[in-house]
Simulated scan of single mutants.
Amino acid sequence: MINDLRQVFYFQDLPDEALHAILPKLKHRIFNKNHTLIYEDDTSRDVFILRSGSVKVFSIQEDKEIIFNFFFPGEAVGELEAIYTDYSRIASVEAMETVHAWLLSRDEFLAIAEQYPSVLRKAYCQLVDHIRVLNRKVVYLSYMDVRRKVANMLLDLAYNLGIEEKGRIRINFKLTHHVFANMIGVTRESLSKIIKEFQDDGLIEMKQKTITIVDIQRLIDLYDSDVAHPKQRRWRGDDTNQCLLP
C-alpha cells in the first residue's frame, strides 16, 4: 500500500511543501475486483492514483474486449483526459483485483500541473510510453500469427513483470486465459492451444494462473526476430523507473 506521495510517479519531483498541500485534497476510494473506475465515453474528469492493486485499460469493439495496458501502484489513470479538453473518456478502466486509490479532481490536478511543470513533463513521458505500447499492439494484431503473438506477449510480460528465479522468469502477475487472449486479440481457445504446445515444448510452465518462462533464450531465438533490444518492449520508459509492483 502506497502512503508516501514520493512513490507517485507524477509527484516524485515536487517539493515537500507541495506534497503536504496535496495530501488533504486526496479522497480515498476502494474498488473491488471487476469494478469499473472509468467508463469509455463518460464525461467525468477525475484522476485516480493507484495505491495498491492493478487495473486494466480496455475498450469494447463489436462485443470484443481489447486490452490496451495495465497500471500498478504509484501510477495514475484518467490524467490525460483531465489535461486534454475533449468531451469523453477514451477507454474504460477496470480493477483486476481489489484496488485502493486516491481520487483527485480535474481542477485540483490541473492546478498542481500549472504550478509545477514537472507534472506536465511526466504526463508527456507517460503519453509517449502509451504510444509505444499501442504501436507494438498494432504489430501484434496486424502482422503476427497466433503463435508469434503469444510468444511475443510472453516476452513483453517477462521484461516488464518478470522475476528471475534460478534461471527461470516468473511473471509476477496472474493472468487468466481470457485476459491474456484479449491482450493480443485472439480467441481463448486459440491461446489455450498455443500455451499447451509451449508447455509440451518445455518453454513455459503454468500453475494457478502464474506463468513461468522456463527457457527464455529459446523463446527469444524462436520468435524475437522483430525486436532488436529489450528496451523496446518496456511499457514504461526510463523516466518512469520505479517499482510498479509492491
Rank of each mutant, 00 (worst) to 15 (best):
M144H: 09
V99A: 01
K122N: 07
T212L: 01
V138I: 11
E94F: 05
N172Q: 09
L157H: 00
Q208S: 13
E165S: 04
K137T: 09
R234T: 04
K27R: 15
R170I: 15
E108H: 14
H229I: 12
L155Q: 05
A91D: 01
L244T: 09
Y84W: 03
T240D: 10
P24N: 10
Y143I: 11
M96Q: 14
S52F: 00
A82N: 04
K25G: 10
D63G: 10
I90K: 13
V47L: 09
A101W: 00
F58V: 00
F198P: 11
A101P: 01
I90L: 15
L26H: 07
D129R: 06
S225R: 09
F11R: 02
P230D: 06
T176E: 06
G167S: 11
N182S: 13
V139I: 12
T36F: 01
C125N: 10
A82W: 05
F68K: 03
S92K: 10
L37T: 00
R136G: 15
L103Y: 03
S54F: 03
I67F: 08
Q126I: 05
V119K: 07
V186A: 05
T212S: 10
R218T: 13
T212G: 01
R29A: 02
V93D: 06
H20Y: 14
P230V: 11
M96H: 07
F70A: 00
L5E: 03
K27W: 05
S52N: 01
G162K: 05
I67Y: 02
L175K: 11
M96T: 13
R45F: 05
D226P: 04
K196P: 04
P24H: 09
I195Q: 06
Y84L: 15
F70G: 00
I22E: 01
S192C: 13
K137V: 06
Y140P: 08
K56M: 02
V93L: 08
T43A: 07
R136M: 15
I163K: 14
E17P: 01
Q115C: 11
Q115R: 15
D238M: 08
C125E: 12
H28I: 10
N182E: 06
E114L: 14
K231L: 06
P230I: 12
N69V: 02
G167I: 03
E75N: 02
N241L: 14
I49R: 01
N135I: 11
P117S: 08
V57A: 02
D145R: 03
C125H: 09
P15Q: 00
L244I: 08
V146K: 13
L103Q: 15
T98Q: 03
E97L: 03
L80E: 05
M183T: 12
I195P: 02
I194S: 05
N32R: 09
R136C: 02
N69T: 09
F58S: 03
L14P: 08
A18I: 08
M1F: 11
E108R: 12
V57F: 00
L157G: 07
K166Y: 08
Y159Q: 10
L14Y: 02
I131L: 12
D129K: 03
D224I: 10
L19T: 07
D41G: 03
K166I: 12
K209M: 07
H100W: 05
Y87T: 12
N241F: 15
R121S: 12
G162D: 00
